[in-house]
């Protein structure tokens, strides 16, 4: 089984050029049919940021957390989550989206979730830049810790790869999957420390919430920019995240590999 898994991954690596071309194409296609085009990729998350900021800053009169303005506290985690939810939902349905290709052409279908990942990644890279700009505007200097965000970004990608292989393969057989995913994303948004502060919670609750691997990622984005902590400092959380991620990755890759022969039959 291990051999097959490695073969599966090597095959994907060989397709890296195709993946990149498809991702560019996907990115271009997503926005060419609307009048404002690429602007939409940024308008939607920006509007969410503004609403949240307005609600928490003026509505709830949140006080600065750990001497950091709420908006700065909120943005890194929110953008990380936004990327996660974007990829998780779009990549899980991507086999249906590309069914016209799966039914008519021969190519490595397993690249499709990765294509979605990269296509959404272009926008996320821009948003990471936005985070830097926002902190700059508030007078924070760029520090070496900030660049750990790339580590968290890549870690999240590995987690997403496993998840989306699993879900996209299952979604071919059952339309229920997309509904399940939207429920998970709804719950996940509030179960992850995005708009609330983990330190305020009782220890027991916090431990339960830490089971969510996105806890590690969102917290990591925040630590890179605000708390200036190295990612190896939270050893337990780091091991837990990678444990979960490896398990999800192996299950996802294997399920995809097993279900793959039937895709064209079912579609």
């Amino acid at each position: 089984m291990l051999n097959k898994l490695i073969g599966f991954l090597i095959d994907i690596w060989r397709e890296r050029k195709t993946i990149l071309d498809l991702a560019k194409n996907d990115f271009r296609a997503k926005y060419t049919n609307s009048i404002l085009g690429i602007v939409w990729a940024f308008v939607v998350p920006f509007s969410t940021i503004l609403i949240m900021w307005f609600v928490f800053e003026f509505g709830f009169r949140s006080v600065p957390v750990d001497d950091v303005p709420f908006i700065l506290f909120y943005i890194p985690a929110f953008l990380a989550w936004n990327y996660f939810s974007d990829v998780f939902s779009s990549a899980s349905g991507c086999l249906w989206e590309y069914s016209y290709m799966i039914k008519k052409m021969c190519f490595r279908v397993s690249v499709l979730p990765i294509v979605k990942l990269i296509s959404a990644g272009f926008v996320h890279m821009f948003f990471i830049f936005v985070i830097f700009v926002m902190f700059g505007l508030y007078g924070y200097k760029v520090s070496i810790y900030n660049f750990q965000v790339l580590y968290y970004f890549l870690s999240m990608d590995i987690l997403l790869m496993g998840l989306t292989w699993l879900c996209s393969a299952l979604a071919v057989f059952s339309k229920d999957i997309s509904n399940v995913i939207s429920v998970i994303l709804q719950v996940g948004f509030w179960a992850t420390p995005i708009v609330w502060v983990p330190n305020n919670l009782p220890e027991k609750v916090n431990i339960i919430l830490k089971c969510n691997p996105m806890y590690y990622i969102c917290n990591g984005y925040r630590e890179s920019f605000i708390y200036h902590k190295w990612f190896w400092e939270n050893k337990a959380e780091c091991f837990y995240f990678w444990g979960i991620t490896v398990v999800v990755f192996v299950i996802g890759a294997n399920m995809f590999r097993r279900l793959r022969p039937q895709f064209a039959d079912v579609m």
Binding site: K17, T18, D21, L22, N25, R28, A29, T32, N33, Y100, M101, K103, K104, M105, F107
Partner: peptide, 21 residues
Amino acid sequence: TGFNMDYTGIENIYLNGIILG
């Protein structure tokens, strides 16, 4: 062949090219 209904003819030509390497 594998044409995306929403793409224009030209975009589909490129897409087919990508798949064929």
